[in-house]
Design a protein around this nucleic acid. Structure first.
Length: 302
DNA sequence: TCTGGTCAAGGTGGT
DNA sequence: ACCACCTTGACCAGA
């Protein structure tokens, strides 16, 4: 069991997701920005290791506009050595990496231009992971997409597109339930047809479900991960009291988290905390986990 | 130096 | 057909 947080460390005076406006794109700006992002990424990883945080989600903005037509700069070659070095240090430390392309990346759109752009963006994610040599345990988590008024047909369209994807993308790709469109059960149906692993978003499942028990869903989604996929990942958050249902909490709710740990007791999972205060909640979660044998095993794994 | 309108990209639901 | 909202941080133009 590892604990992770996404993209940003608020205690460090740097960001690994610096970007700029499309209108001001030029190669110099691009390379300078990526260099800064990678430098901050290394700092975050080092900070994480000293705090036993061995799971981290890389921001899709670490290479801004990487899959956009405006970007013809050969970033793969330009940064290959640096990425390889970073990848070595990630593997040496036993760190797990994930990525989460944003809401515009949709494989089941009826508009093939949207699908094509989405595939390009996924290819960028996979290339980045591969340049770091992170292997198939590094995952790109994606939502199923839109319903377009017909969930079954939209699921079928996802399956059809998935089957055409380059294996270089598929080996990293997992799907995740969302809080309004496709439930964990929908994802399991897709998994049965494609073999794709299902990442359970615990909070989204609580928001949107068909009455399935959380424990059963943890079990069922975990079984979709093969040996090469590594320990199943889950996303965890809790409800922000003031926000609409589905709004992420500002800080981890430790009593809720303790209940989740209890519930998940039979299973080993890498837990991504989708919580606003990022590393602060990760530290709190870890302090709660000191005596959990699943976590101790994780630290020893190196 | 500070502020707030705006940012590559889509989907959904209300009108 | 059109618009606000989803959700997020931060860019950047203008004060």
């Amino acid at each position: 069991m590892r604990i992770g947080y996404p993209c940003i460390n608020r205690r460090l005076d740097c960001t690994s997701a610096k970007k700029f406006r499309l209108a001001s794109f030029n190669d110099e700006r691009f390379f300078t920005t990526v260099s800064g992002n990678l430098s901050c990424f290394r700092q975050i990883l080092a900070w994480n290791v000293t705090h036993n945080i061995l799971f981290f989600r890389i921001s899709s903005d670490i290479i801004p506009f990487a899959s956009h037509p405006v970007c013809s700069a050969p970033w793969q070659e330009h940064f290959s050595e640096e990425l390889e070095r970073i990848g070595h240090s990630i593997r040496d430390a036993g760190i797990r990496i994930s990525m989460h392309p944003d809401q515009f990346i949709i494989l089941n759109s009826p508009d093939e231009r949207i699908v094509s752009r989405s595939v390009d963006e996924l290819a960028y994610h996979a290339t980045l992971l591969d340049l770091m040599g992170l292997g198939t345990q590094a995952k790109i988590q994606l939502h199923v997409g839109g319903r377009y008024g017909d969930s079954q047909e939209s699921i079928a369209r996802f399956v059809r597109v998935y089957d055409t994807l380059d294996p270089a993308i598929r080996r990293h790709l997992v799907i995740e339930n969302d809080e309004t469109r496709f439930s964990a059960t929908d994802c399991l149906e897709i998994s049965e047809q494609t073999g794709i692993p299902v990442l359970l978003d615990v909070f989204h499942h609580a928001c949107y479900n068909n009455g399935e028990e959380m424990g059963d869903m943890l079990d069922a989604t975990g079984r979709t991960w093969g040996a090469a996929d590594g320990i199943p990942m889950v996303d965890y958050s809790s409800q922000h009291p003031a926000k609409r249902p589905g709004g992420h909490a500002e800080h981890i709710d430790l009593s809720d988290f303790r209940q989740f740990l209890e519930l998940s007791q039979p299973f080993d999972r890498d837990i991504m905390l989708e919580i606003k205060d990022k590393e602060t909640s990760a530290l709190a979660a870890i302090s709660l986990l000191q005596k959990d044998p699943r976590f101790e095993r994780g630290i020893g794994r190196g």
